[in-house]
């Protein structure tokens, strides 16, 4: 999984670890000195080729959003390395401003990621004010053009609207436009369609794909929806409780899923076609707490194929076929 030609990758994450200290009350801090941590992300590694879309798929609590935020420098990792466009972003000499110009984030909820008191035009202008040297006139031109690019036309009418005057889909377009307006090379799209109405979802996914092709973007797509990942992504990492359990091309993941968790995920997605009847493999129980994750393989308490070794040792992510990695003792 460690590529020889580093310059074909836009993003390279190596051994990423992020623990969050558990917030404790003042009193309980006095009583016990022991600090507890949420093991949000635990040695995660992946790479994204230039101009490709890589999806992080997993349920809530899998650490996918934390991973995404670390890769654009919104969260400092506990340890590990993130290289964007050839530069380690957590080394001191990397200028924050340079990083922001290169790496942007599309937030999940278009309702709360736009300031309700700022007009669409102001919201789109903000990155340009802080991150570019464009004059006021130039900024307005760039914003207008961007609005047209994301199909919010006539641009002049959208420019002076407030977020609450837009529909959910239009708001998401604004959020996407804001992330792309300074022409970043790398964008994290965090659940870009989760909060959007079903009939508008395909529009938004197509918009992202179009923009990605046009600007040659590299995208990290974060989603809980396997179908969204299958439609958009070139490669996929399946995460469970802070670890990557399986990684490969979209084709490999869906036509030959190896990890029991990936299998369970795929088989439990409700299929919008009553003709398709499948044997569901639903693991019992729910995702355990990330404060004290299970010993050994993190999936072992819910795994139907568990054996002795799974509870004692942590499986490594191994390459089973070219580009297809799995972390499971079955293989």
């Amino acid at each position: 999984m460690h590529a020889t030609f580093t310059d074909e990758f836009m993003v390279s994450v190596e051994g990423l670890v992020k623990y969050f200290p558990v917030q404790k009350s003042f009193i309980s801090q006095l009583i016990s000195r022991k600090r507890e941590y949420v093991h949000a992300v635990d040695s995660v590694s992946f790479q994204i080729r230039k101009g490709k879309i890589h999806a992080l798929v997993g349920e809530s609590g899998s650490g996918k959003t934390t991973t995404g935020k670390v890769t654009v420098g919104l969260i400092e990792p506990t340890s590990g390395k993130v290289v964007i466009d050839g530069r380690d972003i957590f080394k001191d000499e990397v200028d924050r401003r340079e990083l922001r110009k290169k790496a942007q984030y599309i937030f999940q909820d278009p309702n709360s990621s736009l300031n309700p008191r700022m007009k669409v035009g102001q919201a789109l202008e903000e990155p340009l004010i802080h991150l570019s040297d464009a004059t006021k006139q130039e900024r307005k031109e760039i914003v207008m053009k961007m609005l047209e690019d994301v199909n919010l036309s006539p641009a002049a009418s959208f420019y002076s609207r407030y977020p609450h005057e837009l529909s959910g889909g239009q708001r998401q377009r604004v959020v996407i436009a804001r992330a792309l307006i300074i022409q970043p090379k790398y964008v994290v799209a965090d659940e870009p369609v989760a909060m959007v109405d079903a009939s508008v979802r395909a529009q938004i996914m197509d918009l992202l794909i179009t923009m990605q092709k046009r600007l040659g973007l590299t995208i990290l797509l974060i989603t809980h929806d396997l179908a969204v990942a299958s439609y958009m992504a070139d490669t996929i990492s399946v995460m469970y409780l802070g670890k990557i359990v399986e990684q490969g091309s979209t084709e490999q993941i869906f036509s030959n899923p190896l990890h029991p968790y990936t299998n369970a995920l795929i088989s439990s997605v409700p299929v919008p076609d009553p003709k398709v009847k499948r044997e569901k493999q639903i693991p019992h129980g729910e995702v355990p707490s990330a404060i004290r994750p299970p010993e050994g393989c993190r999936f072992n308490p819910r795994c139907p194929y568990r054996f002795d070794r799974c509870t004692r040792e942590v499986p490594e992510l191994l390459e089973l076929e070219e580009g297809h990695f799995v972390s499971c003792f079955l293989y």
Partner: peptide, 24 residues
């Protein structure tokens, strides 16, 4: 029709999505 055709399917990934234009 639009609703059904605009959902990506896991078991039929090559299907082209047809999105409903506009918004509710």
């Amino acid at each position: 029709k639009g609703l059904i055709e605009s959902i990506p399917l896991l078991y039929n990934r090559s299907r082209k999505l047809v999105s409903i234009p506009g918004h509710p």
